[in-house]
C-alpha cells in the first residue's frame, strides 16, 4: 500500500542537516530578499542527494528523487531575460 514502518533514509540525517542549515541561511539572507546572484549550497546538496540516492528505499519517493535528476538542467538555451542571475 505504499507505506513503511520506519522513517526513510535516516543514514542521511547529518548531511540533510548540513544542507538545510545552508539552504535556510541562503533563503533568508539572499533569495527571499531578491538577491539571488548565485546558487549556493551546491556541494551540500550534492552530498545529501547522493546519500538519498543510495539509501532511500521507499519506491515512490525514490522515483521522484531520480526523475528530478533527469530534469535538472531543463532550461538550457532559454532566453535568460528574466533570470535572477542577470538582475543584480
Amino acid at each position: 500500500m505504499g507505506f513503511v514502518k520506519s522513517s526513510p533514509a535516516s543514514q542521511c540525517a547529518d548531511l540533510r542537516t548540513a544542507y538545510h542549515d545552508c539552504f535556510n541561511r541562503w533563503f533568508s539572507e539572499r533569495f527571499s530578499k531578491g538577491k539571488c546572484d548565485k546558487e549556493e549550497c551546491v556541494a551540500e546538496w550534492e552530498k545529501y542527494r547522493g546519500c538519498l540516492a543510495e539509501n532511500l528505499k521507499e519506491k515512490h519517493l525514490r522515483n521522484i528523487l531520480l526523475e528530478a535528476e533527469e530534469s535538472y538542467f531543463p532550461n538550457k538555451g532559454h532566453d535568460g531575460s528574466r533570470s535572477c542571475f542577470n538582475h543584480q
Binding site: 535516516s10 540533510r16 519517493l61
Partner: peptide, 20 residues
C-alpha cells in the same frame, strides 16, 4: 517523523526556486 528534500532547482530563466 521525517522530512527530506528530493529535488531542488533554481530556474535560471524565471528566477524561481522549485522544490519537492
Amino acid at each position: 517523523l521525517d522530512v527530506h528534500t528530493l529535488s531542488h532547482r533554481l530556474d535560471a530563466a524565471s528566477g524561481c526556486l522549485h522544490t519537492v
